[in-house]
Amino acid sequence: MNDIIITENLTKYYGKVHAVDSISINVRKGEIYGFLGLNGAGKTTTIRMLLGIIRPTSGRSYLNGKKVHAGNHSLWDKVGYLVEIPYSYPDLTVYENLEIVRRLRLIVNSSPVESVMEKLKLSPYRDRKAKDLSHGNAQRLGIAKAIIHNPDILILDEPANGLDPAGIVEIREMLREMALQEGVTIFISSHILGEISRFATRIGIIHEGKLVQESDIDHLESSLYRRLQVKTDDTDGARSLLLKKGYTAAIEEDFMEVSGKDAISNPENIASLLVHEGYPPTMLKVEEEDLESYFLRVIEKNGGAK
């Protein structure tokens, strides 16, 4: 069986609030699934249901082919997770916090504590109490707790929170390596598409509890809007010409935006036409929509950000 994480119509209502509404997702082995949504979209609720921490109102989920429920504790042997802000026992040191996780994960050998501290660059803070850690190191400790047992499945809720840019790159590379070299299946939530798209293989966008879009990262790239921006000395005249020739052109401030597949894939035709008709372009460039505007556009199409 290739699908490692499966949710079937996973739904959670809190009274009249539909926190998560009929989410069905399949994540294949070794895949990095980016679960994207604004704050309050239902990401954390979905993750908590995936972990059996809260019970779905309806629907079900499976990890490694086993149904998720609170009583099925053998399920968690090979699952690592981090939910929201990773808190640790404040009066215990980094080492003690990890030692607790090692024992509760029934790991007999004690070496994983040292090696995971090494991996997450926590060794210098080994004897520092968790309450005295910086936000970034507290986050690293949370990630260390999630991976100490070399899980097959990793479920991470906003793991980049609190990390500095170098830390984000480092964690991203570590996760990518785990997925590519060790075949770890990673389900990772975020509200930043630009960040997640750098290493996810598939993206699901959740909005107001509903899965509004799901696509492979390659398909996502091709879904981005591209616009041709043209500036000439006589914008009105150039626009009339382009409209006459069947293009769509709109004036934006001091330039024109020309759309249509042909215009974007062959901007040189527009350039020749304008030069030939006496409106030589002073600027001509293809502008690609950034990932954040794409994310917001998808959400707006589905009711907008609230």
Binding site: R48, L51, G52, I53, A70, G71, H73, S74, L75, W76, D77, V79, Y81, V83, E84, I85, Y87, S88, Y89, P90, V101, L104, R105, L106, K145
Partner: peptide, 13 residues
């Protein structure tokens, strides 16, 4: 201390 969630999905009942 918000540590409860770390005790709920473990290989221990």
């Amino acid at each position: 201390d918000h540590t409860l969630k770390d005790l709920l999905a473990l290989p221990i009942p």
